[in-house]
Design a protein around this nucleic acid. Structure first.
Lengths: 334, 334
DNA sequence: TGAAGTTATGAATACGTAAACATTGTAAAT
DNA sequence: ATTTACAATGTTTACGTATTCATAACTTCA
């Protein structure tokens, strides 16, 4: 492979001068500059970023530990994160993380001496949180947060759950089910808390047979949905813990021959881009500002990296309902 | 940062022995092994992958130059690529590439001494193709291919276009429009060729006012669709150059108050995962085997990297129609 | 017992770059 | 003309690892 030494030899200068041509061209005289640049072109020289990282002790690389892209939330965030990073001249190393392989993912990131880590997949009480703090590598979580309440960007999950239930109640529904996810994810936990509180405030009972906290796999969602609809009093409305869950529930409803919202109203949370597609029109709860959580997070992370800014990031975006076509007024049964 | 030297000092051995413990533990005596491992744990030592790459001259990193994720095709392929690579212990560096920033993307990849490049975004006559060959870095294109007909994985695009038109004709449609993309993408070019040939074979005229090769932006698609539907004889069927385009067209149709397929039939190409969602049910053309192009491509690429396998990859997957709910029999106008 | 072979370890080097330090050249100021 | 300052370049070192080569310790077998 052609190195800066080869360039130096061809140009008749020292390797240091080649380095200067690349990094601080103002410090090098015009004739030498041109000589070196000519040599660079002639040899098709491409500097080795790895070697540079080694000596500079920074890689301009950020590890992204994302959830899977079949969840449209991560489609939006991944796009925002990769694009903003590219624009700021950072590389993104992605991994799609199943929760039980978290530790491998962190290790891989750390081995590669990334300048920072941006991650979604963290549990409330994840021991990795303390580990990352000790490692002294800048990191931030988006969407989910750790119980320590540090370095996160989220939406107001409690309020989102609350509004979601409230919306259904306002539409006249009384048989309202919850299809959520694991309670050791901060998102699902607080969303469910909000949901519960809304029912309580409106004096609607929280029936255990209406509550499903799935593992977010489509088989589990499917099973939950079928159990729900086979109750003797099936719900007329379903609050889903996320848009991804809501879309999955919709898919199940339709393939069961049910009409949404006529037979069952469905609402999600997150307001993912896909939810507004004409064929989907999912009613949902999302950030008022419309700002992408991934974008906010990567911005903050790069700021932390570059400005050694240690002020702890804690962002909670306020939310509102985005009414679309998957929820409707409950018609009284005759 | 703690290095293998620090570990060596603490364990009372040489740095070489630490390296051996990590890479060839069978060559080191049990007591020393344990001493070193204890030191590694005590110091929380994490090997530096960059330094390793430098000396070994391989990074176990692959650059992925993908199209944007708002195109659901790339959602499917990116998932497959990242996951397979992770499984094979390779890291993926993603970039989402706008076509006019191609060269930057390649340069960035090469600077990082990636072991290979997997890319979709190549033009028929892209000069980068020769450059990559000269660089001697393994690469493969998925979806699109270069006119050189080397190192690609694609579906049978011509046949896909042909079947797409044929399907509409079989349904009784005669006013069939095409909404495609740039003709210097191999995909759109061959799909359009197939489409044209089908019309010709069935003695249906190819009216220029029914042909739109967009730049794939939603504004252009929107404009094209409106032009189409404002013709005095608007088409009863639209063949879209890809599922992404088809979904975009559907979205436009619905927001114009049209019903699909009652008012207009729509068919895509690619059979992306999203197309089978209950609320969408997009009729489309896709690989018979159902194998993901990204998966095929990354498999081949890693094989090339590891086995120095120089046999040129040329894969064209056969296709078939996946009939769903966005196309229907043309009802004769009264 | 000792030579030959084998196993375990250490010492030295290379990878490609940036940066600290040293040296030379050149121009300005006296 | 001589000093002084600074601009331009070269020399050397460091980053953290894997690897080659050298050496020491230990077996084996006659």
């Amino acid at each position: 492979m052609v190195s800066s030494k080869d360039v130096a030899k061809l140009a008749g200068v020292s390797q240091a001068t080649v380095s200067r041509v690349l990094n601080t061209p103002d410090l090098v005289k015009k004739p030498t500059l041109e000589k070196v640049q000519r040599a660079i072109n002639d040899l098709n020289y491409i500097p080795n970023a790895q070697a540079r990282s080694l000596v500079q002790n920074k890689s301009r690389t950020i590890a992204l530990l994302s959830g899977p892209l079949h969840n449209p939330f991560f489609v939006d965030t991944t796009t925002a994160i990769v694009n903003y990073a590219s624009q700021m001249d950072y590389r993104i190393q992605v991994q799609f993380v199943n929760d039980h392989k978290l530790n491998d993912a962190y290790t891989i990131a750390l081995e590669h001496k990334v300048d920072g880590i941006i991650l979604s997949c963290i549990l409330n009480d994840d021991p990795i949180f303390e580990k990352l703090k000790r490692m002294n590598v800048p990191f931030i979580t988006y969407n989910r947060k750790h119980q320590n309440n540090e370095y996160f960007v989220e939406i107001d999950n409690y309020e989102a759950g609350y509004l979601s239930a409230k919306h259904m109640i306002d539409q006249g529904h009384e048989l309202i089910a919850w299809v959520g996810g694991p309670q050791n994810f901060s998102t699902f936990y607080h969303r469910f808390q909000g949901f519960s509180q809304a029912l309580k405030d409106e004096r609607i009972g929280l029936k255990p047979e209406y509550i499903f906290n799935t593992d977010t796999t489509s088989t589990d969602i499917s099973a939950s949905f079928h159990q729900l609809m086979n109750l003797k009093n099936p719900p007329s409305a379903i609050c889903a813990g996320s848009d991804s869950l809501a879309l999955n529930v919709m898919d199940n409803a339709i393939s069961m021959g049910l009409e949404v919202p006529k037979d069952v109203s469905i609402i999600g949370i997150d307001n993912v881009d896909l939810s507004s597609h004409g064929s989907i029109q999912l009613t949902t709860v999302g950030s008022i500002s419309g700002r992408n959580l991934g974008h906010l997070a990567i911005q903050k992370l790069i700021d932390m990296i570059e400005n050694k800014n240690n002020s702890c990031v804690k962002i909670t975006e306020p939310v509102k309902i985005f009414p679309r076509s998957t929820t409707s007024q409950k018609v009284k049964q005759t």
